[in-house]
Each structure stands twice: as structure tokens, then as C-alpha cells.
Amino acid sequence: MRFLKLLYLFLVETGQSIWLFLTGKKKLLGGKRTMAKLILSTGNIVSGGPSIIRKPGAYRSNLELTNSLRSNFLAAQEDYAAVAADEAQDGKLHANGDVENGAVKSNGNALHVNTATGGRPPVSVWTAEQDGALYVPRIDWSEAGLQEEPSQYSITVKLFFLPSASVDRRAQFAKEALDLVLKELDAPAVDLLIVSFPGMSFEGDCEWEADRHNAIQGNDEEELATWAAIEDLHRAGLAKSIGLAEFGSEKLARFLKRVQVRPTVNQINIKNCCNVPPPLSKLAKEEGIELLAHSDCTDILPKGTLRELLGQGLGGAGVLADPETGAGGLKGDLAPQWVVKYTAVVRDRGVIENKGYFAGAELTEA
């Protein structure tokens, strides 16, 4: 058994795929392609995030997300650069462990990444494997929590399901995303959880046209199936209230007839039309649903943007391999699955104390 350096069982999706890390090599059982789960985070962008330049009429949350992720990656690399310099020896890094057969061992786990990072600290230094996922950057959970008791805050969370996410796994993604927020804020529950589905918008020459176009967007059956999982989070006491985003009058009316737990909020982005459509305003008033304006993008983290953030190019984090040479990092097809945005506001003062994002993605290797 001496040849067995590490046995790492990692269940993917339904548990049918298992990774075996043997002598520094991955093997696949079950006939599926290997997949790695990535968790990206911005940290608290209120206290330590970048200064975002907001252009009037053009600012949206995808700029805040991408800028904040890039800033957090860079900060983590700088924080661990001194550690990497001290521990580097003969071109090999000993990160809380050993280097054997080209695989860096960090905290006893094999991190199979190429450390040719073009001047950046090796990826294994500023990221961490935990609970079957690669955290980019690594998170010091001992620093988690709010300054006061959670009851002193109004916590709002918005969950974006991205186009590349499997509908069948949305319940899993919702639970993962909410658990991360609760762990980051050290809170037992959030006050409001808003769900954003892909392919939904309010766009048109006027509010009436935008409302008509919205009626045929999305997929009612998929959204209702996902909402059942959101209702479960509400019943479990993890989300005190639940809401929707980008539902027009016709779509919302159909939705309300078929759900068990009704949404308390409907967020809409009317930047690309004019005003709130009168039919939607009337329906919301009759049904006791609060209408809130927002400036978020539905496709908040496109696939190309994520690959650029994690790639080897200028401003990239160096996590992914160069697509042309295959050198420098992890290889495979990258698919963003979800993004969650959270905000903690001090109730008595109306001040945002903590705001940030998590994002989930999967890297599939043939």
C-alpha cells in the first residue's frame, strides 16, 4: 500500500462519478467526465473592496461583481506572496506539506495545478480545497460574522441561476449558496431571499410592450419546480420571506395560481423601458406584493467573463491553464452555475455593514 499516496473520494452530482487521486494522477470511475467545483468570493466589499466607478445610466451589478472578484483575487495573492517566497525552494513550493511528482500537497490534500504562474504566487497557496470544492480565494472562516447580533440587521440575498446551470440541480445550488452566506455572516437566517431566473427581462419601447414581451419569457414549469425548493428553504426557517425578480403581470398571475408560498417581493428592472407597467402595479397591489426596482443583470457572470477572470491573461488570476499552450493551471470547460449577492443593513441606522458575492462554477475535464 506504500504506492498509494492519496485516496480522495469525491462524489459529483448524484454520486455516480468518483475521483481517485493515485500517485498524483486522476482516474475516473462510472464513465463520466471528471468535474471540479469552484467557489469564488469577493469578501466584504463595503470594508475592503475596490472603489467602483459608477457611470450614470450604465452601472450594473455585473461590474461590481467582476471588479470585486478581481480585487479579492489580487489581494489574496499579495497576502500570500511573502509566504510563497519564504517557502519556495529550488522552484518547488512546500505549502503546509510536500511536493511530490509535480503535485503540491496543501494540508494533506493533493492540489493538481501547474505552478508556472508567470510571477503570481502558486494557486495552491492562495486557494484552498474544502468540502469537495476549490475556494478561490481561500476563506478564513474565523473572521466570519457581523459586528452585532444578527437580529440587529436586515439581511437580503439575491440568487441568480445562470443559463449554464442544470435545472435539476437548482435546489442543490440554492442550498449551497444560502449556506455560504449564512456561514459568512454567522447568521441563522436571512430576512429576504430573492430568486432570479435566466432569460427574464423588462425591455421594450414602453412599459406596455415590455410587459407583453415578459409574458412569454423563461419557462413556467422550470421556474415552478425551482420555486418548490425555495419554499423548502422558507419552511426550514432559513429565509423568512422569499421573492422573485423580473416577473411581469401575466407571468406573475400564472405563477401565483400554482405556488404554495407566495412571493412577498417582485424586483423589476425598468431601466430599458419607462415606468412600472400599470397591469403589474395593479396586480401587485391586489395581491399584496411589494414591487422593488433594481439594476442587476440577469446573466450576471457570463462564461467568457469568468474564464477571463480566472485565466492567464492580463488581469487574470492564473487559476486556469492557457487555452493555447495548456500550461499554467487547471484545464477543462468552465461553466458558471450561480451567483448569490448578499447585503446586511443595520436596522437602526440604515447603514450597509456587509455586502458581497459568492459564485459557483464547474470545470469539466474530458
Rank of each mutant, 00 (worst) to 15 (best):
F10N: 06
S17N: 08
K26T: 04
L28Q: 14
L28S: 10
K32P: 00
T34C: 12
M35T: 05
K37S: 10
S41L: 06
T42S: 15
G43C: 15
A58S: 13
S61C: 05
Y80V: 05
A81F: 03
D86R: 09
E87A: 12
D90C: 07
A95S: 14
V123Y: 00
V123H: 01
E129A: 14
L134W: 01
P137K: 03
A144R: 09
L146K: 09
E149F: 07
Y153V: 02
D168V: 08
R170Y: 04
F173R: 00
D179R: 12
D179E: 12
P198Q: 06
W208K: 09
E209P: 04
E209I: 10
R212H: 10
I216M: 12
N219S: 14
E231S: 08
E231L: 09
D232S: 15
K240Q: 14
I242K: 05
A245H: 04
Q260D: 11
V265P: 00
N272D: 11
L292P: 00
S295H: 10
D296V: 03
T298C: 11
D299M: 06
K303W: 03
G304S: 12
E308T: 06
Q312E: 14
A317K: 05
E324Q: 14
G326H: 09
G328S: 00
G328K: 02
G332N: 06
A335S: 07
Y342C: 03
A344P: 05
A344T: 06
D348F: 08
R349G: 08
